[in-house]
Amino acid sequence: MVIFCRVDDRMLHGQVAVTWVNQIAPDAILIANDEAATNEMSKMAFKMAKPAGVKLAIKTIKDAGILLNDPRTEKTKIFILVKTVQDALELVKATGSQIKKVNIGGVKKKEGSRQVLPNVHMNEKDLKALRELHSIVSRIELQMVPGETKTDVNKIL
């Protein structure tokens, strides 16, 4: 069962491994990103950053969808990390109604992007995916850390 889905371009790093994991207490972390799933160096770094006592799976978006749709994962509290809004959108489409809320954390500056919040930069492709995602999931919030005030997605759309 999905308990939290977060967009963070760094995916699993110290802030996520400590602050978010302590806040939501997952049984497992699922990193869903095509590039990460095929990059041995990234996989090794994520395994090193994984908190003790929490399982870790690193899958392509397609394989993550298959895993989440498997009835054997129904009782596992899963924290999903994706790199981009597009990854979140693809995964939501692949899993039906399992992901009801998406949290957006750090999204670094890239060509053609503009800053929408202090640590969130989006280009037109991101905003288009965000609008579509917003039409599918019930809630999208922007928040770097659990103690920070949540910003509703409507403020940037």
Rank of each mutant, 00 (worst) to 15 (best):
151 T>A: 09
142 L>E: 00
38 T>P: 04
146 P>M: 07
3 I>K: 00
135 S>V: 05
136 I>N: 10
95 T>A: 10
118 P>M: 07
37 A>V: 11
142 L>S: 03
11 M>F: 10
132 E>F: 10
25 A>E: 07
123 N>I: 12
75 K>A: 14
43 K>W: 06
84 T>H: 08
152 D>I: 07
109 K>L: 11
95 T>M: 11
148 E>Q: 13
146 P>F: 04
139 R>I: 11
53 G>I: 03
101 K>L: 14
119 N>V: 10
116 V>C: 01
104 I>E: 00
112 G>R: 07
117 L>K: 03
94 A>L: 13
4 F>K: 00
11 M>R: 09
128 K>H: 14
35 E>W: 10
108 K>L: 07
54 V>Y: 04
10 R>T: 04
62 K>D: 15
79 F>S: 02
150 K>P: 00
116 V>Q: 00
19 T>I: 14
37 A>T: 12
8 D>C: 01
30 L>A: 13
15 Q>L: 13
146 P>Y: 06
137 V>C: 11
115 Q>V: 08
4 F>L: 03
91 L>Y: 07
27 D>S: 11
100 K>A: 12
9 D>C: 04
31 I>M: 02
38 T>F: 11
79 F>N: 01
139 R>Y: 13
91 L>G: 04
67 L>E: 10
51 P>L: 02
26 P>Y: 02
126 D>Q: 08
9 D>H: 06
10 R>H: 01
108 K>G: 14
111 E>G: 14
49 A>S: 15
27 D>E: 09
141 E>Y: 12
71 P>G: 09
105 G>P: 04
25 A>K: 06
110 K>A: 08
44 M>G: 10
141 E>C: 09
97 S>P: 09
84 T>L: 08
54 V>W: 02
13 H>Y: 12
137 V>E: 08
74 E>Q: 15
68 L>S: 08
61 I>D: 01
45 A>P: 01
125 K>M: 13
93 K>G: 12
61 I>S: 03
139 R>E: 15
9 D>T: 05
99 I>E: 03
62 K>E: 15
103 N>D: 08
140 I>F: 06
135 S>A: 14
51 P>S: 04
154 N>W: 08
135 S>Q: 14
